[in-house]
Design a protein around this nucleic acid. Structure first.
Lengths: 165, 165
DNA sequence: ACTTGACCTCAACCAAAGTTGAGGCCAGAG
DNA sequence: CTCTGGCCTCAACTTTGGTTGAGGTCAAGT
């Protein structure tokens, strides 16, 4: 059985897939979308540096919170491209993410704490109810649905730092 | 300008759309999927009872938390179909939802609190890290990706009560 | 009577996030 | 040397959650 040879710091796509729990096809996809990068061997096989595992972990956990790949990409684009990211690089990135996570958490708390009330209270003016519009994030941009993704994507997609479109 | 006539307890699709902030096309879609129901006038127009506003609010807020429509439908299917749901019906439903919200919140907390650590700690064994697998929900079902939706859908899609899908 | 706005259906299209399959290359074990 | 497992590309397909548009009905206001 032919084993792919890799140097200590290089991983094959199969290894990344196994260690990250992500399908190879998804890794190819992420690469096409620019979320991860690889070098190629002389025979055109991908080789990943180990920090790719972190990138992938970051991608999956962020998706878990409902953040679309395009936004995740923008965050990852802040990492240095021509050197291996340092702990500080990652920490800076994750600080930004904390803001988003905090916002999500707050939103969920509001939701949870209001659900019973709102259901029970008889208020039919759901437009005003902060269950529907938990943090008044929306509220501008009059009635209309010109191709907005469902709320999860839409929610803080342009939120705290305003940097992601 | 022809104004649609409605009795006190009936709403047109346009009214529901406006009051709920959801596009008419989305309401049609939800109806096709069985998440909401309508009666028809003699001229085949939809009329919604007022509790539809709650159903729609419930749908949108649940989507916001990343729950797929199919699962939301299963929850809504627990409401009585041949009478207007009472406060108690809704409260029972929302109690079930709390469990899910609580799980999500816990997951987010774990994520948030671990992110810096995990990034900084130098642990490369990301498979073991609970950032990647926050509540050990996954972990069975060996390597493989046979058409799984992204983690958000997958996460507690069969979680606390085990009832959905 | 006629027009206008709100509604109807149905089919086609869209985007995101991948998966699947066909066809082909390459390297190491037997 | 050949076979096999792992990798490659590219195109097509999938699901979810809708939107858009064409073509048609109906009822109220003028």
């Amino acid at each position: 059985m032919p084993r792919a040879r890799t140097t200590f710091h290089e991983l094959t796509v199969g290894q990344v897939a196994e260690r990250s729990g992500v399908a190879i096809s998804a890794l190819h996809f992420y690469e096409r979308k620019g979320l991860i990068r690889s070098t190629r061997t002389t025979s055109n096989q991908r080789r990943y540096s180990r920090d790719t595992l972190r990138r992938v972990a970051f991608i999956r956990t962020s998706q878990n919170v409902g953040i679309p790949l395009a936004a995740i990409k923008q965050a990852l684009d802040q990492l240095p491209s021509e050197r291996t990211p340092t702990r500080e690089d990652w920490t800076r990135l994750s600080k930004g993410w904390r803001v988003i996570l905090d916002a999500r958490i707050a939103q969920l708390h509001a939701l949870r704490d209001t659900l019973d009330d709102c259901i029970g209270c008889g208020c039919l003016s759901l437009r005003a109810c902060h269950l529907r519009n938990p943090r008044d994030v929306l509220g501008r941009d009059g009635a209309g649905a010109r191709r907005l993704p469902p709320p999860s994507e839409r929610q803080e997609a342009q939120s705290p730092n305003g940097s992601w479109e």
